[in-house]
Every structure is written in C-alpha cells, then in structure tokens.
C-alpha cells in the first residue's frame, strides 16, 4: 500500500465515520428538525471525504473535477431539500391548514405514530 492509498484510506474512514454519525442522529434525535440537522450536515461532510478519497485513487484531474461537481451538487441539493422538508415539518406541527383535505381520502394515515 503506497502513500496515496494510505491517505485515501484515511479519508475514506473519516467519511464513513460521518455517515455513521448522520445515521445515528437520524435514529436517535427526538424530533424531525434535529434529525434533519444531523443528517444533511454529517452526510455531506462524509460525502466530501469519500469524494476526496475516490479522487486520490482515480488519480486523474478529470475524475477529480467530476467528483467535485458531484459533491457541490449534493451540497446544494441537500440545502434546498433540507429547507423544503423543514417547511413541511413546521407546517404539519401546527394546525392542519385545510381540514377538508384529509378525512375524505379515507385516511392514508401517514402519521401512524402508534405503530
């Protein structure tokens, strides 16, 4: 195992650690907003380390740029997604906006929290 591979391995392990942290947050945190917070941040950091490791292993500028693009896009998409999901979550925390919307559909029962 040469030096580059060693560095890549280290980065990879870092990345996996952040993925694990994100999942632990997803499972353990008490409400949707904190879970959102844990997941979107930790996972994107993990993805950065994974991309760095893969770019080192690939060893070509072209691949590295593509991986950079993937990471930036993921970061961006996660930002917007987190924002939208937070909006949805906040809204459903308050009162139901249009009560008429629910009952008739026969209760697809999204919130079977008792399950």
């Amino acid at each position: 195992m040469n030096l580059v591979e060693l560095v890549a391995a280290g980065l990879l392990v870092c990345g996996l650690f952040f993925y694990l942290a994100g999942t632990v947050g997803l499972l353990r945190f008490p409400d949707a907003l904190s879970r959102l917070h844990a997941l979107t941040k930790a996972d994107n950091l993990g993805l950065m380390f994974v991309c760095l490791a893969a770019a080192l292993l690939a060893g070509s500028l072209r691949a590295a740029l593509l991986l950079l693009l993937v990471w930036l896009l993921a970061l961006f998409a996660a930002t917007v997604s987190a924002h939208l999901i937070a909006q949805v979550s906040l809204r459903s925390q308050g009162q139901a906006l249009e009560p008429g919307d629910e009952g008739g559909a026969g209760g697809p029962a999204d919130g079977e929290s008792g399950k």
Partner: peptide, 15 residues
C-alpha cells in the same frame, strides 16, 4: 404536502 395543506394526519404531530 404543501399544496394539499397538510399531508400529515393530526396524529402526525411530534412531541
């Protein structure tokens, strides 16, 4: 979920 007002049932509120 936004256009339909609330996608969650009332039971979907969190603690």
């Amino acid at each position: 979920s936004r256009a339909s007002g609330s996608s969650d049932q009332p039971g979907g509120q969190q603690r």
